[in-house]
């Protein structure tokens, strides 16, 4: 084999390797999701469980602002009240309303977001419309609850916080796992 031929062989191998590494970058995405799932990090779709009996701290008031957004789907989505005032440890239920403005059936997945960030550690959600995908028939209106409690261990300098949901459109066949939400 001449040097030129031998060179071409190495080049081909390295090119194939480069293309494979390009694919590897994308393969890291499902791998990352799997790791998060196994490690229990970032699981937005499971209800929390209350292990201990938590006392309501009636001496303290918290203001929870409710926020709702949609992204790329023909829905109108809003909380039934702009904010609630609650005590730490108190179980509360708030309602959101969603309306499908289009004349086709649309499936959506809500993804939560909290501000300040540390609220995520102290918020216990027992029920949420964001745990499953929501399928709305043409022009259907639905009211959906979120049942939650904020742990009294929340640092005392945090008194106003925001819970926000954004609805994303799901292709109809995709499963309702937020981590793998596939947009159309």
């Amino acid at each position: 084999m001449s040097v030129a031929q031998a060179n071409t062989v190495i080049m081909k191998k390295l090119l194939i390797f480069s293309v494979a590494m390009f694919g590897f970058g994308f393969a890291l995405v499902p791998f990352y999701e799997k790791i998060c799932e196994v490690a229990g990090v970032n699981n937005l779709l499971k209800a929390d469980t209350l292990t201990e009996n938590i006392q309501v701290d009636t001496s303290r008031w918290l203001t929870i602002e409710l926020d709702a957004n949609t992204r790329g789907l023909p829905w109108q989505f809003k909380p039934m009240q702009a904010s609630v005032r609650i005590h730490p440890g108190e179980m509360v239920e708030v309602m959101y309303e969603v309306r499908n403005n289009s004349d086709r059936e649309v499936a959506g997945q809500a993804i939560p977001s909290y501000s300040p960030q540390l609220l995520a550690q102290h918020l216990k959600k027992l029920e949420c419309f964001c745990f499953t995908k929501q399928v709305l028939k043409p022009n259907e209106v639905r009211q959906m609850p979120v049942q939650f409690m904020i742990e009294p261990s929340l640092p005392s300098n945090v008194n106003v916080m925001t819970i926000s949901y954004t609805f994303f459109e799901l292709s109809s066949e995709s499963a309702d796992t937020g981590g793998k939400a596939k947009p159309i």
Partner: peptide, 27 residues
């Protein structure tokens, strides 16, 4: 280097082609 190319490609499709690799709200 190909992994970087893949990463910025994901950014590009997130920006223009409706994917949600990095958009928290989109999963």
């Amino acid at each position: 280097m190909p992994v970087l190319a893949g990463t910025v490609t994901m950014l590009l499709t997130d920006r223009h082609f409706g994917t949600n690799f990095f958009n928290a709200a989109g999963g």
